[in-house]
């Protein structure tokens, strides 16, 4: 499992993300002083709310409550309001920034993660609703020093330009290959139908997917001479 490092918290190295976070916090404080609607008190009012016993009703929130998510094989405890989506929880509470938030309406696929092995859009699911499920993010799929075959294939096939859609694309392709080790081009296209790439790298994405499938099956990638 990768080291789920939250940029700028465990290290004192100046990063772009830490700078933006800092600037955002400053803006929030300003609005807290000047505006009539202060930002949520957040985790400071966290209350414990264990997973309900079977048959028992549960009330969660509206204040932040502690929930446990299983992310990349680890139990992670976070305090979130019920309105926090899984995508927000992964990024803002667990520091897993590989899951991208773009449209925030389930239409672009940049926030694709695996829920019990199936690709889902993390922006259209509440974090509290993800309890009891196995969540795998791009960080759980592989790391730069031990990439998943789909990740390596994306690098080799030059299947990205700006890279913002890439984690979602990779998660969709990895989910496809886990249940269909030998997809054809049509199946690959249908598997990534929910992932938008505005750079237009689709042909290379398809090629990477087919190459990864071949490699995982131990055969030569399509188009490669024997």
């Amino acid at each position: 499992m990768p080291d789920n490092r939250d940029d700028g918290q465990r290290t004192r190295v100046f990063t772009r993300r830490a700078f933006i976070k800092g600037a955002g916090a400053a803006a929030a404080i300003t609005s807290f002083i000047g505006g009539p609607t202060p930002p949520s008190a957040g985790v400071t009012r966290a209350q414990s709310s264990p997973t309900p016993a079977s048959g028992a009703a549960e009330r969660l929130g509206p204040d932040a409550a502690t929930i446990v998510l299983t992310v990349n094989g680890k139990s992670r405890k976070i305090a979130v309001e019920p309105r926090v989506t899984l995508a927000e929880a992964l990024r803002d509470h667990l520091g897993l920034h590989g899951t991208k938030l773009v449209c925030d309406r389930g239409a672009c696929g940049a926030c694709t993660v695996h829920l019990d092995g199936n690709p889902v859009v993390a922006c259209m699911m509440l974090a509290a609703d993800a309890r009891g499920h196995e969540i795998v993010t791009i960080e759980g799929l592989g790391a730069p020093d031990r990439m998943h075959p789909v990740q390596s294939a994306f690098v080799e096939a030059d299947a990205l330009q700006c890279g913002f859609c890439t984690p979602g694309m990779v998660m969709s392709v990895a989910a496809l290959l886990s249940r269909n080790p030998a997809p054809d081009m049509g199946e690959v296209k249908r598997a990534v139908a929910g992932n938008i790439c505005r750079c237009g790298t689709y042909p290379h994405v398809f090629k990477a997917a087919l190459a990864a499938a071949a490699k995982m099956r131990g055969v030569k990638p399509p188009g490669e001479r024997a």
């Binding site: 549960e58 009330r59 929130g61 509206p62």
Partner: peptide, 10 residues
């Protein structure tokens, strides 16, 4: 999104 609670019915 407004604040709300999540209720799990029996």
């Amino acid at each position: 999104m407004n604040r709300f609670e999540i209720v799990t019915p029996l």
